[in-house]
Amino acid sequence: MVGELEFEKPVVELRKKISELREITKEADVDLTDEIEKLEVRLEKLEKEIYENMKPWDRVQIARHPNRPTTLDYISLLFTDFFECHGDRNFGDDEAIVAGIAKFQGLPVTIIGHQRGKDTKENIRRNFGMPHPEGYRKALRIMKQADKFRRPIICFIDTKGAYPGKAAEERGQSEAIARNLFEMAGLRVPIICIVIGEGGSGGALALGVGNHLHMLENSTYSVISPEGAASILWKDASKAKLAAEKMKITAPDLKELHVIDEIIPEVKGGAHKDMALQAEAIHHALVQSLKELLPLTEEELIANRYEKYKQIGEYAVQTDNEYISTTYK
């Protein structure tokens, strides 16, 4: 199978061996059923061992897997009547973000998500899922429309980050991201954000100010890529593995830091192993969130977002600090 990852190699090899033995049983006149059964027990144990003890770096690899389901994959599995809307009405249409309207179990919703490609051609079209300012401005336009028609907003987060390019800077990448954070705070409808792949820095956060923030089990959310962190902190990009551990970027880490609400369990070995089954788990989480958020009033939804973000962050109160009594002219 293509796209197997380094850490799951033992599982892949064992599986191969089992199917080889099966072939032999079929073709030759030897009965290896006992052997196969034994190996299957071992496989189950091995799978459990490997997939339940994934290191942060293993999860990074899964989150970046080329076959990992994207926003459009989930849209087709979770919603009906999806209608995509294009353009920011100012500059252009950024295909690194998809936005539109649809129905979720009959309920009208607005969907916005980063969109990367699965092959080179599509990745070029989608700019590898790294938006320009017009992408964020399109997202905001569609969110404001959701606010007008009182539709819940569902955001899928899946980007390495906002695109670091010349044109992006000229058109105000910073302002576009900042504006989304600011405006999302004031929307009068429920906002549910789900990190489905990589949540890379401000470019991810610009679709991420919600009432509920969930992460797929093997997705990551970080202030900078592990490679970037390693090169800034230790001037050595090859220490990315270490950075992935120290930076606390996995779903269980973020749950512990009280940044996210729920971890959405993933199919064994990662969402790409069974897209439909994965969509079911997301469906379940969406139902739960909507049940909680739909009864809230507009004021309660806005207050809920305020409190959610206000509590994030840890600090100490130090009254004996020698620098606190600085005198000012």
Binding site: L205, G208, S222, M247, Y309, I312
Partner: peptide, 15 residues
């Protein structure tokens, strides 16, 4: 401070 730093962007903007 990893993702907690990132979230300060949201916190200040919401305020």
């Amino acid at each position: 401070e990893g993702v907690l730093s990132l979230m300060q962007m949201a916190k200040t903007s919401v305020a």
